[in-house]
């Protein structure tokens, strides 16, 4: 079995999904959350963080390329397997009960699609958006803090949209984290699993942390 056949086998595709997802989780989602938390500590710290991040441009671009590759692999494999699964289980039962699959598992293709839509909205809102400048320690820096404030202040609808998408992120993560481990061969038991519980709490924790930024910005 050569590498291509290995990776395009059913388990190989699971490994590709798990790996591209894990890369996005570890190298993008966690650092992004860490950066966002700094928003809660006021304009100076947040703008300084953004300023320093800009100095790391080669690394940032490297990670951006890696993210683009990961999201492409993730979406192509997900679409391919979802399509194949629908076909393998097509025209099935008039009545089908389920006793085990979670809501999060059931909604994976939908929450995944929503996250992709959100990434586009979010990039348009903040990355490819004209930023004003402000002074920090005698340097002129981008006022990223002010941009976040102006986006959410007085716009409850936008706050709602962000919270809605963060629910999708939470749902996706709660199945994804434990599922990835099972794919790598770490036994994740059916019931009473600490890994499943941890997966759910990390998902809830991260989605709430992300969701709290627009709420705080709105209230400021």
């Amino acid at each position: 079995m050569n590498s291509t056949r290995f990776l395009l086998s059913s388990i190989g595709q699971k490994l590709l999904l798990a790996t591209s997802g894990t890369i996005m989780f570890l190298l993008f989602l966690i650092p992004h959350m860490g950066g966002n938390v700094l928003f809660l500590f006021g304009p100076d710290l947040f703008n300084s963080y953004a300023h320093h991040l800009h100095k790391l441009v080669p690394i940032v671009i490297g990670i951006e390329i890696l993210m683009l590759a990961s999201i492409s692999v993730h979406m192509i494999i997900a679409a391919k397997t979802t399509w194949a699964n629908r076909k393998a289980a097509s025209s099935r039962y008039s009545q089908k009960g389920s006793r085990e699959r979670s809501l999060a598992a059931r909604l994976m293709p939908w929450s995944g699609g929503m996250i992709f839509a959100f990434i586009i909205i979010h990039l348009a809102n903040f990355k490819f958006y004209e930023k004003s400048k402000t002074m920090l320690d005698g340097h002129e820096v981008y006022d990223v803090y002010g941009m976040v404030l102006s986006r959410f202040q007085g716009d409850l609808w936008y706050v709602g949209v962000y919270i809605f998408f963060m629910i999708a992120v939470g749902l996706h993560l709660s199945h994804a984290l434990q599922s990835a481990l099972q794919t790598y061969g770490v036994y994740v038991p059916r019931s009473g699993s600490k890994i499943k519980a941890a997966s759910m709490w990390i998902a809830i924790g991260m989605a709430s942390t992300f969701a709290i930024i627009p709420i705080i910005a709105y209230l400021k």
Binding site: M1, R5, S9, S10, I11, Q13, K14, T81, A84, N85, K87, A88, A89, S98, R99, E100, R101, S102, A105, R106, M108, H175, Q178, S179, Q182, T183, V188, R190
Partner: peptide
Amino acid sequence: VDTMDKLGFGNCSNEYECA
């Protein structure tokens, strides 16, 4: 695994309905 894939079975998504 190769035979399983060729026969038109779907892909596992760790939802555990099987167990």
